[in-house]
């Protein structure tokens, strides 16, 4: 039996889940339907309330 995890969606939520799991030593397969990960957040210029750069 595999202990890997599948994450569907490479936006901010999918990326965060993947990183957390990967840091715990669990192998993650991250599936994204678009050519690159980043999702909606990559389209944002800055994020509130700190005006940090989104990328």
């Amino acid at each position: 039996m595999s202990k890997d995890i599948l994450v569907i969606g490479g936006g901010i939520a999918g990326m965060q889940s993947s990183l957390d799991l990967a840091d715990m030593g669990i192998k993650v397969h991250l599936v994204e339907k678009l050519p690159s990960i980043g999702g909606k957040m990559a389209q944002l210029d800055k994020t509130f309330p700190t005006n940090d750069c989104a990328i």
């Binding site: 569907i8 990326m15 991250l30 599936v31 994204e32 678009l34 690159s36 990960i37």
Partner: peptide
């Protein structure tokens, strides 16, 4: 984003879609 691309424990499957899922939790 860069960290996700570089992490040795993450297999990035971009431009891909889930077609079928079978089985149950743990398998």
């Amino acid at each position: 984003m860069l960290d996700v691309g570089r992490h040795p424990n993450i297999e990035l499957l971009a431009y891909s879609e889930v077609e079928k899922v079978e089985g149950e939790a743990g398998n």
